[in-house]
Design a protein around this nucleic acid. Structure first.
Lengths: 114, 114
DNA sequence: TGCTGAATTTAGAAATTCTTCAATTTATGA
DNA sequence: TCATAAATTGAAGAATTTCTAAATTCAGCA
């Protein structure tokens, strides 16, 4: 049996890890609605320009977004529309988990009221 | 229009970050096929028991898996079947992205054929 | 009780990631 | 050419995460 996919699991982990940053998540969500120049991303997300560039570089390296220079500005867009699905599934899971916590909280309250 | 709350983006990022580790990914994939005791997870994944416990603790904290004690062993299972969808979408994106890297691509295809 | 296997916890060092600041590139307009 | 805006890059220190090893908990059993 092949040394079963150590690099594959690493690749998957690396992929998810690039999503593990609030600024990068916000960028992807903004790009869901279409391409945007860095300037606009900076207007919507509170972060220093250099930090934004760093996070954009991470997304670029992973291949999730692509950048095109247009004169003085650089326009970013999603490299694949599949990212939209991923964010949607993630939101569904988070919604389920938070709902579950609410239910648990309700149970605790009911128990305390006895 | 109300800005999406900062804590929400943090929650999303935290969620993805818990997926950003090869051992944790591997555990979730094994649990896809059903509940398993820690002993079996250790038999399939090359990692020290204490390290495994730590990664399982991360998954537990996030609410992705749940653990039940059965005598001397502890059995883990997926907390929500949605995780399966998430892994599937992620694989689809990876397939698209790494078309140039033949080795990884072959492994992904082999996995899809199971 | 004392022993053993299974699993977790704790603590610390090692490695990685994040943030910030200064310097640099690229294009545009005076 | 010079100046400026937009964006990126590089490097350092701070903050997190990860890994390893030792100690601990828990259940079952001689």
């Amino acid at each position: 049996m092949t040394p079963m996919s150590v690099p594959l699991h690493q690749a998957k982990a690396d992929f998810f890890r690039t999503l593990g940053h609030p600024v990068r998540i916000r960028v992807l969500e903004l790009l869901r609605d279409g391409p945007r120049p860095v300037r606009e991303l900076l207007a919507e997300i509170e972060v220093e320009p250099s930090n934004m560039s760093q996070q954009l570089a991470v997304l670029r390296r992973t291949g999730l977004v692509s950048a095109v220079r247009d004169g003085g500005t650089v326009v970013y867009s999603l490299a694949t529309p599949d990212v939209v699905d991923l964010l949607a599934v993630a939101r569904r899971i988070l919604t389920d988990m938070i709902t579950g916590q609410d239910e648990l909280l309700a149970e605790l309250r009911a128990e305390a009221a006895k």
